[in-house]
């Protein structure tokens, strides 16, 4: 019968090993950096179509993560999708004429918001809204547009040929 002290030491080491494993999983395997709520400020943007954008989707400038989406809901007045996002405090001076677009990472990846900073001298304050937005590309609309273009160019060429 192992002594009580040996047992307690064993259990303590076991717990320690498991906690270390958890930390390794958290930081090395899943790249969890934003676990502590980073300081930041909220801004919003309205889109016609958010595609596959979800809460906690990334917000990036030039491909670099600078924040995440915190809320998505439908504006009942304008019927546009209102997306609220938290920008890290390190990104302090975002020009207020910047545009926001919903892009896809890679070919079949998740959607994220890409902010393109412009040249204004006044900056976005907490609670401000980005005015220029580009919605997500919806495949059906693209195909529809493509077919329409093909149709109209054919029509033009046949029209042009008739004497």
């Amino acid at each position: 019968m192992t002594s009580q002290r040996a047992i307690e030491t064993g259990v303590g080491l076991f717990l320690l090993a498991a906690m270390t494993a958890l930390l390794v999983l958290a930081f090395r395997v899943s790249g969890l950096t934003g676990f502590i709520q980073q300081e930041g400020y909220q801004i919003s943007a309205a889109f016609d179509d958010i595609g596959q954008l979800k809460v906690r989707s990334a917000v990036r400038i030039d491909g670099v993560n600078i924040g995440e989406v915190t809320d998505i809901h439908l504006d009942p007045v304008s019927f546009r999708a209102l997306v609220t996002m938290r920008i890290n405090a390190t990104v302090r001076q975002l020009p207020d004429d910047s545009s926001a677009a919903i892009l896809t990472s890679g070919l079949l990846g998740d959607n994220y918001i890409a902010i393109t900073p412009m040249y204004s001298q006044s900056f976005l304050k907490p609670g401000d809204r980005i005015r220029e937005t580009h919605s997500a590309m919806i495949l059906e609309k693209l195909i529809g547009q493509f077919l329409f273009n093909v149709q109209s160019s054919r029509k033009n060429s046949t029209q042009g040929k008739s004497p």
Partner: peptide, 15 residues
Amino acid sequence: FWSNMQSSVDFHADV
């Protein structure tokens, strides 16, 4: 190896 893993694994959904 590690960076690809980190970008695909989400702490809340997976771990």
